[in-house]
């Protein structure tokens, strides 16, 4: 069924958008082109109300218990979490690298800010990603227009506020075009 078929249940609080949660795990020892990356991505839930979100979220594995090289993407319905998607092609993302142990709280705060429309940048936000790696965890938020500095600055400032990060935390912006060129996300 399409994300468009999901509707809020009776008495539920609707969200501004419908979202899909995608899970992907890197296949060890294999090069990742877009096609194989996409093949390893699965939608594990779709929601359009606050209550539907919590229902899915409470059944998901806790991010601090996720092992290995895995990613969870929460993206607006109709946008694939791929650099090549038409919503992302001209976009980019803010990247925050976190030491192990900090990520669960930061991820939840990021998701709640996105679902609650706290970024105040219209339709610009495409989705958010948590990437579990061996040495560190990385969270990122993707937006449509990398070239709009007013938008990217506003996202950065909101991100800094809602994540309540230690003062020395580095935030980097990377365009998806750069990622396509160097074939690397971070």
């Amino acid at each position: 069924p399409s994300y468009k078929d999901v509707v809020p249940g009776p008495g539920e609080h609707p969200l501004q958008y419908t979202y899909c949660i995608w899970y992907s795990k890197k296949q060890p020892g294999r090069a990742q082109d877009a096609a194989s990356f996409e093949k390893n991505m699965n939608v594990i839930g779709t929601f359009c109300s606050v209550e539907q979100f919590w229902k899915i979220y409470s059944h998901m594995i806790r991010v601090n218990e996720m092992a290995g090289h895995s990613d969870i993407h929460v993206f607006k319905g109709g946008i694939k979490p791929l650099w090549e998607d038409k919503a992302n092609r001209l976009g980019g993302k803010w990247i925050v690298r976190l030491r192990k142990g900090l990520v669960a709280r930061c991820w939840e705060n990021l998701i709640l800010a996105m679902l609650g429309e706290q970024f105040m940048v219209g339709d610009e936000v495409c989705g958010a990603v948590i990437s579990i790696r061996f040495q560190e965890d990385i969270i990122s938020i993707w937006n449509r227009t990398a070239g709009d500095e007013q938008v990217t600055s506003r996202i950065r400032d909101t991100l800094r506020r809602v994540l309540n990060l230690p003062p020395n935390t580095v935030m980097e912006y990377k365009t998806h075009n750069e990622s396509l060129k160097d074939k690397s996300s971070f």
């Binding site: 969200l15 501004q16 606050v50 709640l112 800010a113 429309e117």
Partner: peptide
């Protein structure tokens, strides 16, 4: 148009009691 805005504490409250306002 109007956007549906929720703050963190409201969203967390919905988790605790799903049908609350």
């Amino acid at each position: 148009g109007t956007r549906i805005i929720y703050d963190r504490s409201f969203l967390l409250k919905c988790r605790a009691s799903p049908m609350s306002n």
